[in-house]
């Protein structure tokens, strides 16, 4: 048990140790540089302060993730039905994939207001792309000769979608979910930081302004933990899906 934990976490622990030693050996002012131990202390002593922002951020991240994944899948299916639409949507999707969405947060904030819905929208747009791209390729990654089988049985377009293409896309959708979750918390936190709409990003911004660095870093540690946990959960899900579908 402990050995397994060490095997998976040795590198992270090493990093934290280096940080602690670094803080102890250099003489930076403790207001600007804090040690991991003091952050941990604040986390345990004032745990209740973090709960609401953490739930808020998680809620918006998952909500946006769901919205973005769904939109990506729907659009990928629409593309699947028509070559013309496929070309049209692919180019716009490519354009937007290459666009740094995070840079658009200021514009989105101007367009939709400094509100939580903008936060949701940012995460949704961010996670839309992996979903669209992976679902698009998944819908086309069919088992060998299955297309001919379906043609020989005179399968309708709808049956091809429901019985063949959609189940075939499930593993790729699982990848999209993993990639999307990797971003969701981070993007939510950046959006909250910029728009100060509540959640961990907001908490970070406010506590930074008060020079309460322990609390600010505590908030980001929580964000990291959430992000890592979500990522590992979706990785585990992806592994299971792969076993089932391949």
């Amino acid at each position: 048990m402990i050995l397994r934990f060490l095997k998976k976490s040795w590198a992270v622990i090493l990093l934290l140790l280096l940080w602690q030693i670094g803080v102890m050996t250099t003489n930076y002012n403790s207001i600007v540089v804090v040690s991991p131990l003091s952050v941990l202390q604040d986390l345990t002593m004032h745990a209740p302060v973090y709960i609401v922002p953490a739930l808020w951020t998680t809620g918006f991240a998952l909500g946006g993730l769901l919205l973005g994944m769904l939109a990506g899948l729907v659009l990928a299916v629409i593309c699947w039905t028509s070559k013309i639409l496929s070309g049209l949507l692919q180019s716009s999707a490519l354009l937007l994939t290459a666009t740094p969405i995070v840079c658009l947060i200021p514009i989105l904030a101007r367009l939709f207001g400094y509100q939580s819905r903008t936060e949701l929208l940012t995460v949704a747009i961010m996670t839309f792309f992996p979903s669209f791209v992976y679902a698009g390729s998944g819908l086309r990654r069919l088992p060998q000769r299955s297309q001919e089988l379906f043609a020989a049985l005179h399968a309708s377009r709808w049956k091809r979608l429901v019985l063949l293409a959609l189940p075939a896309a499930v593993p790729e959708l699982a990848v999209a979910l993993r990639v999307g979750t990797a971003y969701s918390i981070l993007v939510t936190v950046v959006a909250e930081f910029l728009m100060q709409t509540g959640g961990l990003g907001d908490m970070f911004a406010v506590t930074m302004q008060q020079f309460n660095l322990h609390r600010a870093l505590g908030a980001s540690v929580i964000a990291m933990a959430l992000s890592t946990a979500l990522y590992e959960a979706s990785s585990a899900l992806e592994k299971r899906v792969r076993l089932r579908f391949a």
């Binding site: 060998q144 000769r145 089988l149 020989a152 049985l153 005179h154 019985l163 189940p167 089932r244 579908f245």
Partner: peptide, 22 residues
């Protein structure tokens, strides 16, 4: 042959088994 297809009276099997893995 398309009409036979439409009536689903065609059985076909390939070298690649073409089974749905899921």
């Amino acid at each position: 042959p398309r009409q036979l297809q439409a009536k689903q009276q065609l059985g076909i099997a390939f070298q690649e088994h073409a089974l749905l893995p899921w």
